[in-house]
Amino acid sequence: MTLIDNHEAVGMEGAPRLSEASARDYFELLKPRVMSLVVFTAFAGLVLAPGSINPFIGFIAILCIAIGAGASGALNMWYDADIDAVMSRTAKRPIPAGKILPQEALGFGLTLSAFSVIILGLAVNWLAAGLLAFTIFFYVVIYTMWLKRSTPQNIVIGGAAGAFPPMIGWACVTGGVSVESIVLFLIIFLWTPAHFWALALFKMGDYGAVGVPMMPNVCGEATTKRQIVVYALLTALSGICPTLLGFASLGYGAFATVLGLGFVWYSLAVLRMPEGDKRMLPAKKLFAFSIAYLFAIFSALLVDYVIAQVWLNAGGII
C-alpha cells in the first residue's frame, strides 16, 4: 500500500501515475553507447597528458566525465522526446516508449549534471569541472535546444560538445589547455560532420518527417556528399597532426595516414553513390567505418604512448 498525492501527470490527466521504470531504463537515458566513446576519448586525453594523476583520482575523473556526458544525453532525450517518438531510430527510447516521464528525465539529468561537475571540481580540479559544465551546457542548450532544429550546420557546431572529453581528460592531469589537447579536440570535431551526415543520408526520411534540418534534407544529397569528402579530408589531416606536432611517433603517423586514406576512400564511395539510391550502402559503410576510425585513432595514440614510455624506461632514445 502506498500513499500518493492526487497530482496529475502529463498524458495521464485525472489518473495517478505510478512508475514502472526499471533502473535499466534510467541507464538507457544516459545513452550508454555514446558514453563509451566519451569514456574512451577522455581516458586517452588523461593518459596522453604530461604529468601524473593518482589512479583513483583518474578513475573519478573518467567517471565524472562519463556521468556528465550521460546527464547531457538524458537532458537531450527530455527536450527531444517529441521528435524521438516519430523517428524509427529513437522511438524505443525510455520517454517515447512511455517508461519514464519527461519531467523525471529532466530531474535525473539536472541532478547528475550538478553532481558530476561538483565532484570533478572537488576531487580533481575546477578547470576540468568548468569544461565539463560548459560541455553539458553546449550540448543541451546550444546544440539540442537551439541549433538542432534551426540550421543544417547543427552537427558541425554541435560536434564541439562531443569533442571536449579528451580535452577535459587532459585538463584533469595538467590543470590547463594546450595545443596537444586542442588537436585531440579537433580530430573529433572535424570527424563529426562526415560521421553524422552519413547517418543523415540513410535516415533522411526520418529527419524530414520531424522537420530537423539536416544537411541532406536542406541542401540536398549532392551538396552533403561533397561536404562529407571535405570533412573526411580535414579529419585525415587532423589525424596525423599529433606526429606533425611531435607528440606521437612516425609509426603512429603512418598508421593514421592509412586510416585517413580509408576514411577519404569511403567518403568518395558516398560521393559516387547515385542520387536517390534507396539502400545507401556506401553511406552505411562510411558510418560504420567512421566509428571504427575514431576508436582506432585514439587506440593508436594510446599504444604509441605506451611504447614510447616502455622505450624511455628501457633507456632508449626516441
Partner: peptide, 19 residues
C-alpha cells in the same frame, strides 16, 4: 489523500530502482 495498491510490476520496478 488517497491510497492505491501497487501492482506486482510496480513493486518489482520500485524495488529495482531502490536497490
Amino acid at each position: 489523500m488517497e491510497t492505491v495498491k501497487l501492482s506486482e510490476t510496480q513493486k518489482k520496478s520500485r524495488r529495482g530502482r531502490n536497490i
